[in-house]
């Protein structure tokens, strides 16, 4: 079942379109935003809410790459693999990120913290190589800069887990 929040958000978007079906992509994104990814249950929930069939949603969900049908880590690293970034050395970064995180593109770290996904052109080619972590752009990257960025996410998390520990 959709949460109240999810339902409200979907309804707000549904007002932009003349029919239910049109909001289905947004609905999947909303579910993903709340749950991290779109599970079979998520598909079923959206299907029920929009009077669609799971197959119809699956058809759409598997077409678009920003709908995750598999669980992802807490942070999703989208590394641009398109031409300008490739020219500017994206492959080196991929290697570096992979080594650093101990995963290959498409995988999630064992601690569930990071998922590394190669991604098409992020539209910041004048600052290649580029990556996005969650909603944030990181540009003009090199391995040292990547280390810094990863560290900042790790620190942030340690802070929040510390906080949790203190609470309990």
């Amino acid at each position: 079942m959709l949460s109240e929040q999810e339902r409200r958000e979907i309804e707000a978007h549904a007002r932009h379109y003349p029919n239910n079906r049109a909001v289905c992509i947004e609905a999947l994104k909303i579910v993903q935003q709340h749950r991290g990814w779109v599970s079979n249950e998520g598909i079923a929930d959206v299907a029920e809410a929009l009077q669609m069939k799971p197959a119809e949603l699956e058809s759409v969900a598997t077409f678009y790459n920003m709908i995750f049908r598999k669980p992802v880590g807490k942070h999703v690293i989208l590394l641009c693999d398109s031409v300008s970034c490739w020219i500017m050395g994206y492959e080196r970064l991929r290697q570096h990120l992979g080594d650093k995180l101990g995963i290959r593109p498409g995988q999630t770290t064992a601690d569930g913290r990071f998922t590394l996904l190669p991604n098409v052109c992020l539209g910041a080619c004048d600052h290649a190589p580029v990556m996005m972590v969650d909603d944030a752009y990181y540009q003009d990257l090199d391995p040292a800069r990547v280390d810094e960025i990863l560290a900042s996410y790790q620190q942030e998390e340690e802070k929040s887990t510390d906080g949790n520990a203190a609470d309990s």
Binding site: N40, M52, K53, P54, A55, E56, E58, S59, T62, F63
Partner: peptide
Amino acid sequence: GRDLDALVLRNQVYFGRHQ
């Protein structure tokens, strides 16, 4: 019918059910 559909894209299009 609504339980059979085209899934995925490119040369990976899959014609099947949700499950």
